[in-house]
Design a binder for these strands. Structure first.
Lengths: 155, 155
DNA sequence: ATTAATTTGTTGCATTTGCAACAATAATAT
DNA sequence: ATATTATTGTTGCAAATGCAACAAATTAAT
């Protein structure tokens, strides 16, 4: 194995961020399966985000949960069929949009999942110290803001 | 819009990392298309990683390029058909494996892509200062190492 | 010596994802 | 007034992805 001193892709910060993101997703789905939660990670993030904003239209939600519009619509269809959200017509800037909010059942399932998750995560060894995590959050925030100027997300 | 003070998923470091990773991937593919490079981002990363290691077996490569074994095999099939790599039988721990290395054409296309990329990236506004980027690399490295103990990647 | 377990790579399939095109509606321009 | 552009959500399809199952070959166990 010969290692060159030139920068290679796998040594860049882009690679490290993608790698870490994959770890996060794997770990997240593994935890959701292990705990037998009746929601996927994406569904949980969706319910949690709706609960944060109260009422929100689909496109705004799509931007928040990092999905495109069709994927967001499909996730919402499933949550709707299972009675966790209701969708209703509303307006945003005088424009007709489809907004949604949590139902009583949606709130209950979200609270239940949150409770189980919090208990589980509290018993995990801490990955970073508080200070290190603050540093990471700050650095990645700066980096993301730099990228935002260059990239077109088209959602 | 009511904002609660509780932590919500979209405020966690997991979310921020996934978000930033998506930006990286979008930006990467957009640049590769804009520059009309004859490789995709994944193909470039594959060639670049093979060139770094010289000779490597598929499974080890899969771990490095963050793909599973089938996806890695398919990327390699395509690079093989286009004459950028050759594959040959070899042994690793007395076990028969399929290794690969770059062909002359593979080296040329990689160098050409690297040259175009370097020129383009040199003219982009710097996203982070050197110090900030070092901080980010260090923080995310620590975080990744913490996650590695908890997550099973199965590649 | 047989059997069981591991490692590596491939195949096939089901799921997910991304993306373009469309419909509906409203804002803006001419 | 009409046409153009923009926004939102859906549909449909192609591509990518993940995953289980398999084959081949080697190591470890009994």
């Amino acid at each position: 194995m010969k290692i060159s001193e030139e920068t290679h892709y796998i040594n860049t910060v882009y690679y490290k961020i993608e790698q870490t993101a994959k770890y996060c997703r794997h770990l997240g789905t593994q935890i959701f399966e292990k705990l037998r939660l009746p929601l996927t990670l994406d569904e949980f993030a969706t319910l949690d985000t709706i609960s944060l904003y109260g009422e929100i239209c689909q496109r705004d939600l799509a931007k928040l949960i990092l999905k495109d519009r069709p994927s967001t619509g499909r996730i919402l269809n499933s949550l709707d069929e299972r009675g966790f959200i209701t969708r209703f017509a509303d307006t945003k800037n005088n424009r007709l949009v489809r907004k949604m909010k949590l139902t009583k059942e949606g709130n209950e399932i979200l609270e239940k999942a949150l409770k189980i998750l919090r208990e589980y995560l509290a018993n995990l060894p801490q990955v970073l110290s508080d200070e290190e995590r603050d540093n990471l959050e700050h650095s990645i925030q700066m980096f993301k803001q730099g990228l935002e100027k260059e990239v077109e997300m088209n959602i």
